[in-house]
Amino acid sequence: MGITMVIATYFFAPGTAERDASALLTASVDILVVTAGLIGLIVLLRHHTRNISRRGRYWKYSIVTIIGVILYLIVGLYGVATHEQHLMYASDLFSWVYNNLYVHMDMTIFSLLAFFIASAAYRAFRLRSLEASILLIVGSLMLLGRAPIGGVIWEGFPEIATWLLNVPNTAGNRAITLSVAIGAILLAIRQLIGVERGYLGPER
């Protein structure tokens, strides 16, 4: 553990040292991060294959996942075989599948939030206190001011929304930004001097 700390401290240099050297270092990190993501993929596949072999909960759906993996992988490998530089992600058919099939699922899953937010507006937003009222009124004014209908109802709404964004919101968010900056800098220093070790994973 002591050595990891030394390595971390040693690499503190990029922020201040000569630019080109730091660019090479940070570019190396790009490659490291890529491999880290691969671990996540392996863990996912391991989970689903185990789930099928043990007939665990929803194991039939794990089969769907594996089929999805196999089909898309075939598309990808076809891309690797046909692409000039043997790239997968940049190959035509692979990006077509992403842009025309995958995005539908992703967008629809995220758009479910629209329904939840409408339902929450109806059930959870209560004018219990002055604070809640401020939140609600500012929120409503923003909603009216930032959609065309606000300007149709009263031309002041868009101006109010812009003012709310520019003045009170800027003040509040600036305080949050400053506080977060202090917190992040402290966390980084704690990591560098080895006090904060959560990122290293579990003790084994």
């Binding site: 691969l38 996912l44 759906y61 999805g68 992600y89």
Partner: peptide, 12 residues
Amino acid sequence: HLFIGLAAVFTL
């Protein structure tokens, strides 16, 4: 589940 499968290959 299909979405998860495709997302995994996309990551790869």
